[in-house]
Amino acid sequence: MMPQSAESIPLKHSHSLAMTIQLVEDNPMDVDLTLRAFARRKLVNPVQVARDGEEALAWIARWEAGEPLPAAILLDLKLPRVNGLDVLRQFKIHPLCRTIPVIVLTTSGEDHDVRTAYELGANSYIIKPVEFSRFLEVVAQIELYWCITNKPPC
């Protein structure tokens, strides 16, 4: 039983002017749960999802074509095709999108992953908790901080 597609979940307070949040996550359940968690926080920003590394890198072309930059990118590390660290590397060397805050959101707490992510320029590193209640808290913190408190690059 697959959950419903994330894009189809209606965002209750969609706001056309709000900057998007880009989510890079291959696990459909995680995508669904993340979106649900955002929904519970009544997130105004639209969420765009990429289901693997390639898809995420394809955004670069769209931004180059003039699409507005997102408020933040939530990036899983364990991705099919191009893994998360490579995606991060590509984003952070690109002159246009290197300023976009990238929040690594992953299950791995390995020292190696944490260190490499920060070395490549990750702006934050958050370990995804297993318990849904704690996951909700984490998502709430991300929403509060990166969509409201933080001033994104101009």
Binding site: M29, D30, V130, F132
Partner: peptide, 20 residues
């Protein structure tokens, strides 16, 4: 490493949906 991480993802699903 892989097992630990890959086991966690479905676990999160189970917990999440049971919670929901």
């Amino acid at each position: 490493y892989s097992v630990s991480h890959d086991l966690k993802a479905p676990l999160r699903g189970i917990d999440g949906y049971s919670r929901l």
